[in-house]
Design a protein around this nucleic acid. Structure first.
Lengths: 195, 195
DNA sequence: CCATTATTAGAGAGCAGTCTCCAATACAAA
DNA sequence: TTTGTATTGGAGACTGCTCTCTAATAATGG
């Protein structure tokens, strides 16, 4: 009934992600994506209503890929404490394996113009974040974190600290050392409620 | 001998820093800085040869302010271990006290166009970083960190972990909770060589 | 083979941002 | 007062980016 697409959405997002990974948000211009993917600007605007929409899709795709692997770990079988340690390790391992994606997530959604995103994209972001936060929260209760401080410590152990361990390497473009995985686990041990 | 300056360099950098703190690197356009400071573009370009130079000065001023307070702590008197814990705490405390500055340092120099900076600015950056790294390294040896892994753990304890603890709050614009200070110290305990 | 339609293709309008240039200005020194 | 000079002030050239518009194209269903 119609002409088949020559360029896939993923292909365009790949180009955008590559630019974002190396040059940060500012490098992801519509012109640069079009050039890098070998697509005329018209085709790009046929897929995405504008730059904010493209940035939103790229961000959500990247975040989603991390989220599925992360929630997989969180939802795994076994005792909560080993699970929490595994989750902390996983953040670092995932960053080691997906440096380009991790370099994108190093920025906030705000750095990719979140405030201009189309409403559906914002909702997807909201729901993705809520899902992860609820998984972490449920693990926190299983760990015996009752008050706010204890819950904050769990969040820090599972997300913020492992992420911090990786940041500098992502910024500098150097590979994340394997020793960072153990550091994340050691910090988690120190932050989680006593066993 | 000449007309006195009406606008100080600091005043212009303040405007730039405010823009960077709220909107990130992309918000710091020469036009925006001029408008926000109430300065015509000609005056701005009289002080700074171009946008890269302005960004460099802003970054170096912000980094320098952190560095002096941080190296003060590192060079303090006393046993190395309490000193290291104090340094870890200090990173979080400083971010709590200087949220705007911390929000700037959350980005890398690369995000502020480091590759286009004038050569003298690059040298100053290099030397500032080297100074801090050497202070950390000397503390690491005093702590008994002999191999590379142990040294990496010290760096992580003193810089990367405390910084990671603060990141999310900086991104979201929420104040950094006081509990984060203790978390930084607890993680440092776990990462430093055993006492 | 024709009509329909999603997609490609690219030219170019419009705009925001950087930077240049030159005249006007205000002060210090002679 | 006069001269010299660092600075202000702003107009506008130039560039790069976003986005629009229209025509061409390639497949499908009748």
């Amino acid at each position: 009934m119609a002409r088949p697409p020559r360029y896939s959405t993923d292909q365009l997002l790949d180009a955008a992600a590559a630019l974002a990974g190396t040059g940060g948000p500012a490098a992801v211009t519509m012109t640069a994506v079009a050039k890098s993917a070998g697509v005329p600007s018209g085709s790009l605007y046929h897929r995405f209503p504008g730059r904010p929409a493209l940035l939103a899709e790229m961000w959500l795709r990247t975040l989603g890929r991390f989220h599925v692997s992360y929630t997989d770990v969180l939802a795994g079988p076994g005792e909560p404490r080993p699970l929490a340690l595994a989750a902390a390790r996983h953040v670092v391992e995932w960053s080691r394996e997906h440096p380009q994606a991790a370099r994108i997530l190093r920025y906030g959604a705000a750095d990719f113009g979140k405030e201009s995103w189309p409403a559906p994209a914002l909702e997807r972001l909201e729901s993705a974040n809520a899902q992860v936060m609820s998984a972490v929260a449920s693990l926190a209760t299983r760990l015996g974190a009752t008050d706010d401080t204890a819950r904050e410590r769990v969040t820090a152990a599972l997300i913020e600290v492992p992420y911090g361990l990786v940041q500098r390497h992502l910024r500098e473009g150097t590979p994340v050392p394997a020793t960072a995985v153990d550091m994340a686990a050691d910090c988690a041990e120190a932050l989680l409620p006593p066993a």
